[in-house]
């Protein structure tokens, strides 16, 4: 709960116009505590004290962002290859929506703040 955390999230929110070109980054992945039940994952974020329930797609997105920063386009490309047979438009919309949710939950920030 460092004193510098809140301004970073505040700025991220201020600039959080979700564009395909925004490169997203997951800060301090070590602060995330995971549990899995069936296909769902439970996530406790030590930084915020919040708990999240993630469906398989959300978990995949967060895993990819943990590996390296990604923009929306590269996430769509990687996940399309992982989830063959998915309607591309629906997948793209779901990824966009998930990034928005992660951003507003403070789980991810644009990479230029890192």
């Amino acid at each position: 709960m460092g004193s510098g955390r809140r301004p970073i999230i505040g700025r991220a929110r201020y600039f959080s116009v979700i564009e395909a070109s925004t490169v997203w980054h997951l800060p301090e992945p070590g602060s995330l505590v995971w549990r899995s039940f069936d296909s769902y994952s439970l996530l406790f974020n030590e930084r915020s004290g919040d708990t999240h329930v993630l469906d398989p797609l959300s978990r995949e997105i967060l895993d990819l962002l943990m590996e390296a920063p990604h923009d929306e386009t590269s996430l769509v490309r990687e996940l399309s290859s992982l989830m063959e047979g998915q309607d591309p438009a629906k997948l793209e919309a779901a990824i966009h929506e998930t990034l928005e949710a992660f951003d507003s939950a403070g789980l991810i920030i644009p990479a230029y703040f890192s």
Partner: peptide, 26 residues
Amino acid sequence: FEGAEAFAMLRGASVNCDRLGQAAFD
């Protein structure tokens, strides 16, 4: 019911899980 739904329902019944943080999550 089980899994994530059970977790969410039980967590919803907790009065102080936010104050307890990870101990409550675990």
